[in-house]
Design a protein around this nucleic acid. Structure first.
Length: 816
RNA sequence: GCCCGGGUGGCGGAAUUGGUAGACGCAACGGACUUAAAAUCCGUUAUCCGAAAGGGUGUGCGGGUUCAAGUCCCGCCCCGGGCACCA
């Protein structure tokens, strides 16, 4: 009587073995090939959700696969512990954010352990601990000295009722989430990091990153948005200061029929002083949140200011407007408008009855009607005086030269990428290490006074940071002159913590440097796995920080992540699982019912990793059923005693077939996991092989030997996905040493050899028959066989055979 | 609005470099076992016509390239992710 599959017993025993043997704790071993395999660390929300299970399982499969390939694998885990949810919980329940966070971490850690991930827990990082964040404070002060950080005004969402700054997420339909008040744009001084100083490097290196998906690289390229254009100035009637604008289409300059400035622009304020309608309009423009999507989709509004600018080429006067879609903080706060050749300008001109002038014509001479449709292509200049007949490049250069000669403008490379604003007006984050002194202005906290520790015992009320009300935190002597001064109470954007944690895992306990020599061994990360939603911000900030650390002499590595896998979301009923929708599935319940292996297997089998995964309770049961079949197949086989080695000379055809299938499957699963990251097809291949083993049911000595070889291969190959059951079955097969220390099986090329191959015969591309031919058959012989097929004959009779295409080993297409 | 993905049976998906559309699994149906149910095992299953052999249609929609298109090109529709303070 064989033992039935009991997931809990099997899983706890396997986990105990790994813990006792410290299987996943790794040191630096220069004789071995290292493989650093990392997932984006989680925010400790307190409860594990299916998205976590998916991403961590994907990464665990890759980590365990590389270990089977003989590599020295590091897979660490930690906590992105600062952030808004802790403050929200504090407001709601009165628990201090630190206490809430630490208790969540403890809960989640034990849930992760139950899933059997191969983590080196000795390297755990928690970003809200001073030992961690002191080093980003340190780096910030270094950047300050290099001029890589600076302070300037920038816009925030201001809730006028709660008197507080809101995150974009807290703005719902333009209103504050708690107060329901209309949100306003407000400018306040904030700290910025000069990511634009690295824009070219961040852009150029994308061309040399074959391990990243093209989609992510394209998104980052577009985000950086390098453009070559001309910055030029328009004089303004009765003003001393000219208006400076940037354009990537200087060839359309003769088509400028109006200009627009931001509501906050000094020229707009000047008009508002004498015109109450304009004052009202400007006030309205402020009544919107600070999101780009809002700006791009809202109704484009504007008003004429009654001021004119002078066209720099024609001397003609063009009217100046104030518009809600121009922002003061981007570029110069002013734009030139070419309604004939810019979609937004065209619509705006139509709406406000502004003139539209065609200055570009299609190269092929086609006539267009500029009043009917905007023309966006590059073409030939018309209605442009001396520049008529020039193409884009000719006009660009001629006009740029003209401005450079007259000193009225110059060629300029521009980026869509803006510097990174890191100030947050929140409590639960890393304190920005700055002291404000009336004499010395903003002074960075000296190295020997770091870290600036965030007080953990506080009461969070919901309007503004509690730090502001703590004199023991705020009051500090100026590090330069010693006079009474005040600490910065803003904290860092939590993206700062996640921009360097991957390097710190190499040396989490280093207390005299941000990174030490161990980083040289482990970095860069070989495989990074995380959500596609981080394709731009987190990944770009991390690439930036890696370079800042490099230039600080902390590492030689420029790119932090060699290979990137972006996984899709977990959906239920077609929508993202969320508490609000009430469509969540609790992993803990499923683990209790079926075990961790079943949950892991379903996650890997249900969809390819990059795609969204539709949750299915039935599918989970199917995975459980497969594991039961797998268990009884191996236990059943082992129960009939040991099997000998395969003797290839005594195998009959069906034994040879199973052996071929075994070695085909070893090759396929290795390729699926190692190269394609196609875990769903890897599982399917293992299922097919198990089906074939069960079908053979051959009790002879040779049959049992072939079955044993196949079963051992399946146990090893499925172990990255379902490590616990495989650990137990490996023992069941009589092995003394643990599965975790095994190697991936080798493919026996001889077993793959085949005498006959089936080919498909098409007539005019339609399937009409199948023929079986020798693998090394000549083309002529294949052709003759194909033409001889009875059904094929029916379709070609009475027609001339015009052409025959033979694709070796695949098909024959007869064209009649 | 802009940038990036996706759309294939009743469902999740497979088809790796333009070469047999639907692997593997779920569900459903039929059968075996059972007093019965569950579990397990065997079989059928894109769709339409046909007793069968076989044939027609079919990868979101409309066009195109090719001996051959789920795959490449052009134009649409719908769904998802990101848009700089959710992480």
């Amino acid at each position: 009587m064989s033992t039935p599959y009991n997931p809990e017993t099997v899983e706890l025993a396997a986990q105990k073995h790994w813990t006792d043997a410290r299987s996943f704790e790794v040191g630096e071993d220069p004789d071995k090939d290292k493989y650093y395999c990392l997932t984006m660390f989680p925010y400790p929300s307190g409860k594990l959700h299916m998205g976590h299970v998916r991403v961590f399982t994907i990464n665990d499969v890759i980590a365990r696969y590389h270990r089977l390939q003989g590599m020295h694998v590091l897979q660490p885990m930690g906590w992105d512990a600062f952030g808004m949810p802790a403050e929200n919980a504090a407001i709601k329940r009165g628990v201090p954010p630190a206490k809430w966070t630490y208790s969540n971490i403890a809960d989640m850690r034990s849930q992760f352990k139950r899933l059997g991930y191969a983590y080196d827990w000795t390297r755990e990082i928690t970003t809200c601990k001073p030992e961690y964040y002191r080093w980003e404070q340190w780096l910030f002060t270094k950047m300050f000295k290099k001029g890589l950080v600076y302070r300037k005004n920038s816009v925030v969402n201001w809730d006028p009722v709660d008197q507080t700054v809101l995150a974009n997420e807290q703005v719902i339909d333009g209103r504050g989430w708690r107060s329901d008040a209309l949100v306003e744009r407000r400018e306040i001084p904030q700290w910025f990091m000069k990511i634009t100083a690295y824009a070219d490097e961040l852009l150029d290196e994308l061309d040399r990153m074959p391990g990243w998906p093209d989609s992510v690289k394209t998104m980052q390229r577009n985000w950086i948005g390098r453009s070559e254009g001309v910055e030029l100035s328009f004089d303004v009637v009765d003003e001393v200061e000219p208006l400076t604008v940037y354009t990537t289409r200087p060839d359309t300059l003769m088509g400028v029929t109006y200009m627009a400035v931001a509501a906050e622009h000094p020229l707009a304020s000047k008009s508002a002083a004498t015109n109450p309608d304009i004052a009202t309009f400007i006030q309205e423009c402020r009544q919107t949140d600070a999101q780009e999507a809002t700006l791009e989709t809202m109704e484009k509004k504007g008003m004429a200011l009654g001021i004119s600018a002078i066209h720099p080429l024609t001397g003609e006067e063009v009217p100046l407007w104030v518009a809600n879609f121009v922002l003061m903080s981007y570029g110069t706060g002013a734009v030139m408008a070419v309604p004939g050749h810019d979609a937004r300008d065209w619509e705006f001109a139509k709406k406000h009855d502004l003139p539209i002038r065609q200055v570009i014509a299609p190269t092929d001479g086609t006539e267009i009607d500029i009043e009917e449709a905007v023309y966006l292509e590059r073409g030939v200049l018309v209605n442009s005086g001396d520049y008529n007949g020039l193409d884009f490049d000719g006009a660009f250069n001629a006009i740029a030269d003209h401005f450079e000669k007259t000193g009225r403008g110059s060629r300029k490379v521009n980026y869509r990428l803006r510097d990174w604003g890191v100030s947050r007006q929140r409590y639960w984050g890393t304190p920005i290490p700055i002291i404000y002194c009336d004499e010395c202005d903003a002074v960075p906290v000296p190295e020997d006074q770091l870290p600036v520790v965030l007080p953990e015992h506080v009461e969070v009320k919901g309007c503004g940071s509690p730090l502001k009300d703590m004199p023991e935190f705020v009051n500090a002597p100026c590090p330069k002159c010693g006079k009474d001064a005040r600490r910065e109470t803003d904290t860092f954007d939590t993206f700062v913590e996640s921009s360097w944690y991957f390097a710190r895992y190499a040396c989490p306990d280093s207390d005299d440097a941000m990174l030490d020599d161990r980083t040289k061994y482990w970095t860069p990360v070989d495989q990074y796995t995380g959500g596609i939603e981080h394709a731009i911000l987190h990944l770009l900030y991390s690439r930036f920080f890696q370079r800042v650390m490099r230039d600080e002499g902390l590492t030689d590595v420029s790119e932090p992540f060699t290979n990137l896998l972006t996984q899709g979301m977990v959906l239920k009923d077609g929508a993202k699982m969320s508490k609000a929708k009430g469509n969540t599935v609790d992993p803990a319940e499923l683990i209790e019912k079926y075990g961790a292996d079943t949950v892991r297997l379903f996650m890997m089998f249900a969809a390819p990793p990059e795609q969204a995964l539709e949750w299915s309770d039935e599918g989970v049961q199917g995975s459980f059923r497969f594991l039961k079949r797998f268990w009884s197949a191996v236990v059943g086989h082992a129960g009939t005693g040991p099997a000998g080695d395969v003797d290839v000379n005594v195998l009959n055809d069906s034994q040879k077939d199973l052996r071929r299938k075994t070695h085909q499957t070893i090759a396929k699963i290795g390729d699926d996991i190692g190269r394609r990251r196609s875990f769903n097809t890897a599982v399917a291949a293992a299922m097919e092989l198990l089906n074939a083993i069960n079908k053979l049911a051959d009790g002879s000595e040779a049959g049992r030997a072939v079955e044993r070889e196949a079963l051992e291969a399946v146990v090893v190959m499925l172990s990255p996905m379902v490590p616990h059951i495989c650990h137990a079955l490996w023992q069941e097969l009589g092995h003394e040493s643990a599965l975790i220390d095994q190697r991936w099986p080798d493919v026996d090329e001889n077993a793959l050899a085949l005498d006959l191959v089936e080919m498909v015969v098409q007539v005019n591309g339609k399937l009409r028959g199948r023929i079986s031919v020798a693998v090394d058959a000549a083309k002529d012989a294949i052709e003759a066989d194909a033409l001889a097929d009875e059904n094929v004959q029916r379709f070609i009779s009475g027609n001339d055979v015009r052409k025959v295409i033979v694709v070796p080993g695949r098909l024959v297409n007869i064209v009649v």
